[in-house]
Design a binder for these strands. Structure first.
Lengths: 124, 124
DNA sequence: ATAACATATCATAATATCATGATATGAAAA
DNA sequence: TTTTCATATCATGATATTATGATATGTTAT
């Protein structure tokens, strides 16, 4: 999806200012791959939903089963379960089966760090 | 939007296990407000788009004008400008007018931290 | 004043995401 | 084995987000 579309009329915007060409080259050298951007945006997208964020924030405090999450969040089971599936699919939570119950926890300290830096940001 | 819907059939899920009620109370005490969750998820949503993420990652390296961003990202000006508007509206980038140009930079170190922790996460 | 340029805004069609009802699975209790 | 309970999956309509074409704004040069 990159480096095609050569008739794009933005090709030489700003070319007159040749100092800019250097800056463009510098930043381009440091760019992650298209796949990495894509994975990273998928990862952040998971945080971009209040229900999932609530689940994450509760699991920062302690591990919980699905029904506890439903009760604490006042949400129906389908909703919580669906969001947990998305969180699982993105490796952000894991669970242990205990009888009929599933006890969920965060997989990773990064999840907690990002949540907390974000919270700090919106509170300042 | 919370604490209504009392005929919700999930009210007493798991009530039999009284140990769970304690856990539910503990985590509920620590929950941010509905508004804070909403603001926080809006904030993270901004990271959940590859174009915006690319812009953020380039501005982590150095400040750039709109046309440099267009060139480095091989995207048309409308797309970049629209995403910059969203980033501005969410206080994630700022800009200084320099003649006809607008030089953009990140507003905040939190933005860079979150980007970098996320990148670390998907690379591990 | 007019042309050229850098950037911003508006309108829109294609696409993605959300919460939820209906239903399935799978484990323990009766 | 039948019932009950905790959880998972599927299908869907409502809503949100995306990139982009058309157009507007505002600045510098002629």
């Amino acid at each position: 999806m990159e480096n095609n579309n050569l008739e794009n009329n933005n090709e030489d915007l700003c070319e007159v200012f040749n100092s800019h060409a250097d800056a463009v080259n510098r930043v381009k050298e440091r760019m992650p791959s298209e796949d990495q951007y894509s994975n990273l945006s998928e990862f952040f997208k998971i945080f971009g939903n209040p229900t999932r964020l609530k689940i994450i924030s509760l699991l920062c405090v302690e591990d919980l089963c699905v029904c506890d999450l439903c009760e604490a969040l006042d949400l129906n089971q389908t909703t919580v379960s669906n969001q947990l599936r998305i969180l699982r699919a993105n490796n952000m939570v894991k669970y242990k089966k205990e009888g009929k119950m599933a006890r969920y926890s965060l997989t990773d300290l990064h999840i907690e760090m990002i949540y907390k830096v974000g919270l700090e940001h919106i509170l300042e």
